[in-house]
Nucleic acid binder design. Structure first.
Lengths: 339, 339
DNA sequence: ATTTTATGCGCAATCGATTGCAAAAATAAA
DNA sequence: TTTATTTTTGCAATCGATTGCGCATAAAAT
């Protein structure tokens, strides 16, 4: 609560012996107010330390100039960089950004989304949780025609803008690379097949195998939550097979790193005995030994573009531009773990 | 803009042929409303899909249930984890969190702070930019008695709560460690001396040297912006001295990493020729080769505590509890770069 | 001098929820 | 049945900025 009583346009008006409407207009450089009055009002506003009450303006105008963002976790580099991109663009347009994290839990996600809805954010940018298999909470936005944009992980039952990376292509490129370097027994540690990104990566993976006539071996396919622990377990299962893989496509860098650690402990040579490729290009991936091959996703650009797109929608709310699905290219970075 | 016309308490009231006040009270379980009416109203509210307009409530109550957060960069792990902690606690108390980044620029910081002020956030949590050498923008909060809390980097000219890590102790511990392992020529790549955290680390550094009778050599003291490039340059200067240091305390892990890279390229052995210690425990520090000694700062805990503290202040705005400066302990993690 | 056209400004309603005060209704007491 | 008491509800103002409409006054045209 402000101790100093707020200075409002009414205070200014009284002080200047004019009406509040005139003050309001003068402050917004409305053409219907004379140059002279405008100057006087603006001068007085500065003098008295006037600060517009955005709440009141928002109530009246039914806009909040605020974007809601929901990500699984803020402290994962990919998401942090997406947010950074969102925030940077939003700022240039005068939008604020409210952040929430779902912790990859459906229920928390639903709560966050509902909360943001109730807070009247002008748009929602979201990457859904690993658990999300229903869309009721998201319909709150789509059905009320409040701009909604998915990035990376999306919900296919909801029509909306999406900014994705080309996961199919990425999966394909990775697998192709492993094949090209001579791997014969290629394994894949996947994330939850429920999420499109993992479905697509797997499809790319399978396509590459098929194309090269490499057989798909069921026991080389693991599905996990892509945590460090689960990754470790899955990789350990693979390596204790009688014919362990000589190339592993890990669903993210976290699992790839845990695989690397496993190899160091068990004196498995990387990439000689087994080649490893991760996904995301975490900050550590370039600097571990051996450095980790991976796929770089342009997080900052995704965020920047997402903010641009959604703010454009907000500002042209009544145009009926069709929804757009943008797929940004990924970059396969070949490092020592698969050289 | 919502397409469906909003459902307000007035709509509900009309529908139920009672007054809006009664509806308002019924929805908030006010004791002055009979059990019967309350049930009816709440039932109808659900039925009609009523969603309270938080803007209106905020305008009236002069609270926004929102915390503002300003950090130099969101995509730095330390800050991301602090934000994660803030968001987690804030959420349990029903607070939203608006994030802005200053990009370590004073002018952007001032803009962000002013914007958050105008948006009537109930409190501000900030870690100031490297450039910040004035406090006018921050006085907006402190002088209007809106809770303000610094973490990590603070502004000493402003009275307020602070959550810090014990930088003096950390600097001392690091230096002590280098001395104990036998380093004779110890260098320090510092951050801007304007910021207290760097001042304090340096004080700890000097204290340790003095205590052990190790002479302070001016040419071993570098001051930089702690970026990768500047760190590289500073380290290179140090290593091309006729008597290069055999132990370097780097202001953060970024510079430590660039030092490591320099060493690899110039065949300088770490830690045999020069021992390195960083600061922050970035995610990569544990996994580079050699793994990087560093100081772990409890980011998540700092954020969580900061949110607790500031929300407590917000909820007890009129109590006159004195400002508190909390210093959390750091943990020296000795890894291979200085073993 | 009179009519037309601009220009500058104010009135009052609006956005939706909250709340002090008073009135009405229901219940208890006399 | 009447009065006192308690419970329940409504009126109307408030939070602060915005805006459609209309009234003045001034300037331009006739």
């Amino acid at each position: 609560m402000r101790k100093h009583s707020e200075i409002t346009i009414h205070n200014l008006a009284k002080e200047l012996k004019i009406s509040a409407s005139t003050v309001s207009r003068a402050l917004k450089d409305n053409v219907r107010i004379s140059e002279k009055t405008r100057k006087i009002v603006q001068q007085k506003a500065i003098e008295m330390g006037y600060r517009p009450n955005i709440l009141a303006a928002n109530l009246r105008s039914k806009r909040t100039m605020t974007l809601g963002v929901v990500v699984p976790r803020i402290d994962r580099y990919f998401f942090a960089s997406v947010i950074s991109g969102i925030e940077d663009y939003a700022w240039t347009e005068g939008f604020n950004v409210i952040i929430s994290q779902s912790n990859d839990l459906l229920i928390k996600e639903a709560n966050c989304v509902t909360n943001l809805y109730n807070n009247r954010v002008d748009g929602l940018i979201i990457s859904i949780s690993m658990q999300t298999d229903e869309d009721k909470h998201l319909r709150l936005f789509s059905e009320n025609h409040i701009p909604l944009l998915f990035f990376d992980r999306y919900c296919s039952t909801i029509e909306s803008d999406r900014i994705l990376v080309d996961d199919f292509d990425a999966g394909y490129k990775i697998t192709r690379h492993l094949i090209d370097r001579g791997c014969k027994r290629i394994a894949y540690i996947a994330g939850p097949g429920m999420l499109n990104i993992y479905k697509n990566r797997k499809a790319g993976f399978l396509k590459a195998l098929e194309e090269s006539g490499v057989p798909v071996v069921e026991k080389y396919l693991e599905e996990t939550g892509l945590t460090k622990e689960e990754g470790r377990k899955a990789f350990s299962r693979l390596m204790t097979l009688s014919d362990p893989p000589d190339g592993v496509f890990c669903g993210n860098d976290t699992t790839a790193l845990s695989a690397l650690e496993y190899c160091q402990e068990h004196r498995v040579r990387v990439p000689e005995d087994v080649a490893l490729v991760g996904f995301s290009d975490e900050p550590y991936s370039a600097v571990v030994t051996p450095s980790l091959s991976t796929v770089k996703q342009p997080g900052y650009e995704i965020g920047y573009l997402a903010a641009q797109k959604i703010i454009h929608r907000i500002q042209n709310i009544n145009s009926d531009e069709p929804f757009e699905q943008i797929e940004l290219p990924t970059q396969l970075i070949i490092r020592n773990s698969s050289k």
